[in-house]
Amino acid sequence: MREPFVLYETRGRVAILTLNRPDTRNAIGEHADCAELVEAVERANADRSISVLVLTGLGASFSAGGNLKGMRDRDGIGPLATPADTRDNYKKGVQKIALAFAGLEIASIAAVNGHAIGLGCDIACLCDMRVASDAAKFAASFVKMGIVPGDGGAWILPRTIGYARAAEMILTGDTYTAAEAREMGLVNKVVPADQVMDEALKLADRVAANPPRAVRLAKRLLREGQHSRLTDVLELSAAFQALAHETADHKEAVEAFLDKRPPVFTGA
């Protein structure tokens, strides 16, 4: 029986997704792998009790990206018999991962426990925040293999670290240490390897401590702000704010502040 590629667990308002192929450095090689990750992301998003998703990898790597053996054999999520087949293969496989993360209303954190290479790097960057092991390595190494970022990396990376840095990563294909990734804004924090999940969960708990509906609305505004005009974001902000003002959690936050007591949020 096939072992699940994505392990799913919850801790309070936090969903933890773990890539479960340590023997292949959590490489993504089959459409079933893509489908499982998409399903897990959508499951967390649909659960109104969840405010934060944490994504990590089992073993020494976060994800080595695509499976090169599958590329060579033209069997998996990459090239197939014809260019037309390959185009469709990317659209129904790895690109659905990008769309699933782009559609997230909850916050997301990548706990990068090891190497995040190619597709693995882009998946980490699809998350809102990243906590990395000091032993982690990052690379958008597609050109090194004579290909391009077919997973949407040309859209993902510039929005994470800016155009010039993204151009450097994508056009050189070079590998960067965790310290270098921190300096270029690719990760929020670098910690010793044995502290990555603890730090990621601490960050998740700080987000999850806030009113759940406000977190989801604020997250959507952040995403919209990446590609919309200021006037459009202002209009959406006013509409979202009108909704937020009517929530029970907003009223509780105001009362708790005035009463000088800790608030108790219910998600209502």
Rank of each mutant, 00 (worst) to 15 (best):
A84E: 15
T231K: 11
V190P: 10
D174R: 15
T231R: 13
R74P: 01
T160W: 04
T86I: 04
I16E: 04
D174M: 11
D23A: 14
E105V: 01
D198E: 15
Q195P: 02
L68D: 13
S51Y: 00
G114I: 08
A200C: 02
E9I: 02
S133P: 09
S49D: 15
L222M: 13
A15V: 01
A167G: 10
A110D: 00
N45S: 08
A64V: 00
K69N: 10
A32L: 11
A140E: 11
E3W: 05
V94F: 06
I109W: 00
Y90T: 02
V148N: 13
L37E: 07
E255G: 04
A179D: 12
L55D: 00
G225H: 02
E180L: 03
A214I: 08
K96D: 07
A256M: 09
Y90S: 03
A208I: 00
V131F: 01
R159Q: 14
E168S: 08
H115I: 12
P262V: 06
Q241P: 00
N210C: 07
M71C: 12
A181I: 04
A256T: 08
L203W: 03
G57V: 09
A209I: 04
I147H: 03
H31P: 08
G146V: 00
G57T: 09
T82H: 05
H250R: 12
K219S: 10
N89I: 07
A15N: 03
G57S: 06
G114F: 05
T56I: 02
F257K: 10
A139N: 02
A193L: 02
E3S: 13
G114S: 09
S61N: 12
A248Q: 03
V41N: 00
Q95A: 07
A136S: 14
R182Y: 12
D198P: 01
N67R: 06
R74H: 14
V196T: 07
G103E: 05
D73S: 05
V207T: 00
H227G: 11
D88Q: 14
P79R: 15
A15I: 02
